[in-house]
């Protein structure tokens, strides 16, 4: 089962804008639906919904989180093998590859090139074969 939208939906189309694979159908002020064939279960629709209208595959409500508080990938370049799987699986295409500054390695390694575009789905963390990616929440006001 993929994510679904319940009757609480007011039709604000916010989830439609955020969905990285265009799986959500719906017009303004009308109940939205998720195409289960296209949905990839990233859960971003639930994280942006202010009306508790999105349920995950198990039927639990997905809690709302502010986009600024979403966990984002942090890369450990000591153990990354530069296989680029994270780069490929990222549904929003915000993981790029470049030569990291101040690092002795010759490999071109992945990095989060646009943290605003990241939807916090953690697909990169789950796919990494060496555990080099950890999803961390940004902490404000670090002294």
């Amino acid at each position: 089962m993929t994510h679904t939208i319940n009757r609480e939906c007011v039709g604000c189309v916010l989830c439609v804008h955020y969905c990285p694979v265009d799986a959500i159908r719906g017009e303004k002020k009308k109940l939205h639906t998720i195409d289960p064939v296209i949905c990839i279960d990233c859960g971003v629709c639930g994280r942006v919904c202010a009306f508790k209208a999105v349920e995950d595959g198990a039927g639990n409500l997905v809690a709302r989180e502010k986009p600024t508080e979403w966990a984002r990938p942090v890369f450990d370049y000591q153990i990354c093998v530069a296989c680029n799987l994270c780069n490929m699986i990222c549904p929003t295409g915000v993981i790029g590859a470049q030569h990291p500054d101040g690092h002795k390695r010759l490999e071109i390694l992945p990095y989060l090139q646009e943290s605003k575009g990241c939807i916090g789905c953690a697909f990169c963390e789950s796919i990494c074969p060496t555990g080099a990616i950890e999803m961390l929440k940004m902490v404000k006001n670090i002294q």
């Binding site: 093998v81 530069a82 296989c83 680029n84 799987l85 780069n87 490929m88 030569h99 390695r105 010759l106 490999e107 071109i108 074969p129």
Partner: peptide, 17 residues
């Protein structure tokens, strides 16, 4: 002469450069 390693997609070996 190698400036950077080049990996194909899904490759932990990286024979290119």
């Amino acid at each position: 002469l190698e400036k950077a390693k080049y990996h194909c997609y899904a490759c932990p070996v990286g024979c290119g450069g």
